[in-house]
């Protein structure tokens, strides 16, 4: 579980996050939505410990985020970003093995090789293991990184939850890959992980999120189930455009008319 308590973040006079109080639970997919500049990425970056909050506290489980050691944190918390480029050619297997780096000292153990293999298998990437990462398509590359961050937190660590933070992971994927990705996420969430992500596509968020957080100008405008959060008035306030909301399989379906 991640608990965010009275979180504030600002650069100079510019307030980017204000009085954020949230709870992200294990076994659920929590997604953060909002307009550009609403503070989505800033919030995720504070959760990743890339930005240090001006005030307030973030706890992973019962332990404040600031008290984690670098490796301790990396063993239980993985982050998947939107677009990762490699400077040098590497085999796919080596990229996935990087996820195991926090777990071994100099040479990978047997367990690391096994995890690597299993992670590749679970994403149907076994045939790619020996391919040069740089020759893959954008969708394949993102799957490799998904496999890498899964390898990073493959086995639960005694006394900790496992966390997966996603920073707009779908941005460069086509529809097929987007849905493949979200379905994997549903499967993973059932393994009792804490999953928090930033997404742009409201319908994708409505369809897959258990918990939605709508940010507006650095504050929480709404937080709850997709049906609670995705109302006409909330969306109009947050995105400054009026939506048409229908219902499909019990979830809101949002469209906009020009």
């Amino acid at each position: 579980m991640i608990t965010v308590h009275q979180l504030n973040y600002s650069i100079g006079n510019k307030v980017l996050l204000q009085d954020i109080n949230l709870r992200f639970e294990a076994g659920k997919i929590s997604l953060i939505i909002g307009a550009n500049g609403a503070g989505k990425s800033t919030l995720l970056k504070t959760l990743c410990r890339q930005l240090i909050p001006v005030s307030g506290e973030i706890k992973m489980g019962h332990k404040p985020l600031s008290q984690f050691g670098n490796n301790e944190l990396a063993r239980i918390r993985a982050v998947l970003s939107q677009h990762i480029d490699l400077a040098f050619p590497l085999r796919v297997e080596e990229v996935v093995m990087m996820g195991r780096y926090p777990h071994f000292n100099n040479r990978p153990d047997k367990i690391d090789y096994n995890v690597c293999k299993a992670a590749l298998e679970s994403f149907d990437l076994s045939a790619f293991a020996d391919r040069n990462y740089l020759t893959l398509s954008g969708g394949e590359k993102q799957l490799v990184h998904f496999a890498r961050v899964m390898a990073q937190t493959w086995h639960p660590q005694e006394g900790y939850d496992r966390y997966l933070l996603l920073d707009e992971p779908l941005t460069f994927l086509d529809i097929q890959h987007q849905y493949q990705f979200m379905k994997m996420l549903l499967k993973i969430a059932r393994e009792n992980r804490v999953i928090v992500g930033v997404v742009h596509d409201l319908n994708l968020a409505a369809q897959f999120a258990d918990h939605l957080v709508l940010l507006h100008q650095g504050k929480i405008l709404a937080s709850g189930t997709p049906t609670e959060v995705l109302t006409i008035s909330n969306i109009t306030t947050a995105f400054n455009i009026k939506p048409v909301i229908q219902e499909q399989h019990g979830k809101p379906l949002i469209s906009f008319s020009v």
């Binding site: 670098n70 993985a78 990762i84 490699l86 400077a87 996820g99 780096y101 100099n106 990073q152």
Partner: peptide, 19 residues
Amino acid sequence: KQLNSLMLGEEEAQHLGVN
């Protein structure tokens, strides 16, 4: 090992526990 993870970029390396 740390230099390897840097191949993914500075932020990704940090996510893998590298200072």
